[in-house]
């Protein structure tokens, strides 16, 4: 008789669902790829539907298994099935620091997301920080109508790990 394999564990790792959302082209997939595979590409391949992947991170000595849902960016929220967000413990809302159109509706969007996953953690992330210089940074941030949690670059990897750790901490506490 053949031996059957099933999950075997050492610690007691918790699993959490996390969604990457935001307008198209802001760099959700790039952040996902940088975080999971340490890779970046200049090519833009728009995400169709959704891609799910997993990464285990360590938060204060505990393993946490993040199931990341990278969903296609849509200009209007009602094109994304609401059910994708259900059961998510965390949401990463990404916008592009170089495209004001991607942060103009941030307030409305966050309000909507809060209504779907009440009590979940939402992080607001300004991406493509490598494309703006220091002077512009302050200027742009004053235009963003919401508190930004962290600025990242999927290209250089700046703050990518930190962003997920920050989220992880919030998910566990």
């Amino acid at each position: 008789m053949q031996e059957t394999k099933y999950n075997i564990s050492q610690g007691n790792m918790i699993s959490k669902k996390v969604i990457l959302t935001g307008s198209f082209g802001v760099g959700k997939t790039s952040l996902f790829n940088q975080f999971i595979y340490n890779k970046f590409s200049d090519k833009y391949l728009t995400t169709i539907g959704v891609k799910v992947n997993k990464k285990v991170i360590n938060v204060d000595g505990n393993d946490l298994s993040l199931l990341l849902w990278d969903i296609a960016g849509e200009v209007s929220q009602d094109k994304v099935p609401t059910s994708y967000f259900l059961g998510a413990s965390g949401i990463i809302y990404v916008f592009d620091l170089t495209r004001p159109a991607t942060f103009r509706n941030i307030e409305k969007d966050i309000q909507y997301l809060n209504s779907i996953i009440s009590g979940g953690v939402i992080k607001v992330v300004g991406n493509k920080v490598d494309l703006i210089d220091l002077q512009n940074k302050e200027e742009i941030l004053t235009q963003v109508p919401y508190d930004v949690d962290i600025l990242t670059s999927a290209k250089t990897g700046e703050n990518v790990e930190d962003m997920f750790s920050l989220l992880g901490k919030n998910l566990i506490s």
Binding site: T4, Y6, S15, K17, N53, K54, S65, L67, S89
Partner: peptide, 22 residues
């Protein structure tokens, strides 16, 4: 709702069960 895996079993080795469930 979440698509998180409670558990799984298979006849062959399969490492990506969490991802498949999602």
């Amino acid at each position: 709702n979440s698509g998180l895996l409670f558990g799984s079993a298979s006849k062959s080795v399969n490492l990506d069960q969490d991802v498949i469930a999602g």
